[in-house]
Amino acid sequence: MSAAPLITINGLYKEFPIHKGILDQLTIAGGRVVKKHESVKALSGVELTVWKGESLCVVGESGCGKSTLARVIMSLIKPTRGEIRYEQERIDTKGVGELLPYRKKMQMIFQNPYASLNPRMTVRQTLQEPMTLHNPELNVAEVNERVVEVTRSVGIDPSWSDRYPHEFSGGQRQRISIARALAVDPEFIVADEPISALDVSIQAQVLNLMMDAREQRALTYLFITHDLAVVEHFGSRVAVMYLGTLCELAPTKKLFSSPQHPYTQALLSAIPRLNQSSSDYIRLRGEVPTPVNLPDGCVFHGRCIHASDRCRRENPALKTYADTAVACHAIEEGRI
């Protein structure tokens, strides 16, 4: 790891309180009326470093907290506990105004191309907005020139810039969404499932576009996805998440050739591949627990065939073995 850390995340927790009426919150416990706070634990103690120039993929199933992680990093929601640093500076405590210089450096691409563009703004207006906000010194002609440049770079005909989003297909909208992220010339992009809403033939186009941008602009990506096939292709490092915790963090090649954590193994075996029968996947027992009542110990123990008493009691920490970091007692104890 010769590169410098770009984003450092320490002990990150995020809980969403469940909004109930005041009467539902009150329960009687031990003869007294107690106000009970229930919350969804979306992130429970995430430690992660994004190195400059890498493409870190975060994979996991729905509800594992990967999108929350993206939103917390982008300061769209404030974490409950923990800190996030951009280079050396803490960004999780900053307000809207203080964040402005960081907004220019970090941008985000969203999942749903049909919801991520304002339906009442033309492509030009959508792209001009970030440019004029972050580069107030530019005059109208310069801004327009840049709009043309960035639309062309994402493969959209600049003569279409006065059209509204509904006139474009899903893939084209996602290109526009990428153009908006690139408009401020960022160095770090968080992509939250950017291709999962697109058709197969379009997915390849958008993925290629993102890889081209990575090469031309020396971008660092945090790529959130549930699709392991894409991870294998796109990522340089992979973080596997389960119920708000990180279970494995490894270089892509290593993770796909020798997955360590039992959950990673199950996940990898479940990808439907061409020319492979479906019977040889690892079956998991039971069900994913709800993030409202997290089990004690390792969050995965209920579905894990290697679970021991210790797994049910004690939460495993992320430990590094060679270049892989795994949070699993069984591996630590040499049982697997």
Binding site: R103, Q107, S116, E129, S177
Partner: peptide
Amino acid sequence: EYVDAVRVIG
């Protein structure tokens, strides 16, 4: 998401 997008813009 477009509201999140403009919040990310700052």
